[in-house]
Amino acid sequence: MYQTISENQRHEFIAKLQPVLPEIQYYLPSFLDRRILFVMNKMGFADWQNFMSYLDNDHSYDAIFSFLMVPVTEFFRDSLVWHTLFHTIVPKLIKNDPCHVWFPDCSSGHEVYSLCMLLDILNVRNRVRIYAGCKSQQTIDKIQTGVYSAQCESMLVANYKNAEIPYDISKYYTINYNSLICNPELLSNVSFIHSSSLLEDEVPQISLIMYRNSLLYYTTDSQHTFITTMYKKMNFGAYLLLGIKEGGNIFGLQALFSTYNKDLGLYRKK
């Protein structure tokens, strides 16, 4: 039978992590249950009490966070989105200085690197400032090394080809043994923010927010809170990029944003 955890166990876990990860209270219970089991499995805990004892004694929580968050596992995921960013959205954005882009929940760096490559190809990387919010310092350190599995390359090449961006992407990374290593120079325009919640992030007025496939995991009420918070940090007419399946059912979205392209998950601040 599919493994489950009890409501009491979930509450116990939330109580322990809430001081360092306030957003945990907003997760959908079913999602949180899956992630707790995933964390336990990855960290080798079969016994709940042992797991709780570990949480009591480990106050960095970095390892927990790195397994709790859902990583993006592809560069240029959803090719049509990147095609549109390259050909339409970014050229519009850079007409206005300053241009600030915000990734409120950066879990693996795939999207940050993808955007930096795209900006470099457009020769506008130095005109765009990127803010990437990460929940753990360990994640930031890992992203800054630029090291990913070499298996990522086939996906990167396939997605990039489908995005129909007519430039050679291979100059931005090297393959070394079992690793794909992104050129760390690509991150020169990126400011990483180590914060436990996007609600606390200090960012300037934003032109584009990339928050893809994150709202899927939150309750309806908290979706509204996050959408409202992001809205307040955006310029008029700024773009909000959600996941391609997050769509118009996100609570509060339609009131604050107009739909630019629902199939791309692309919205504009009203």
């Binding site: 899956r34 899927l216 399946k245």
Partner: peptide, 21 residues
């Protein structure tokens, strides 16, 4: 079910998606 997403269904007939592993 769309490509590249896990899909789940709640008892109220609502669809949930996930990009988990």
């Amino acid at each position: 079910v769309p490509a590249n997403y896990h899909m789940m269904i709640q008892s109220d007939m609502r669809v949930l998606f996930s990009t988990e592993e």
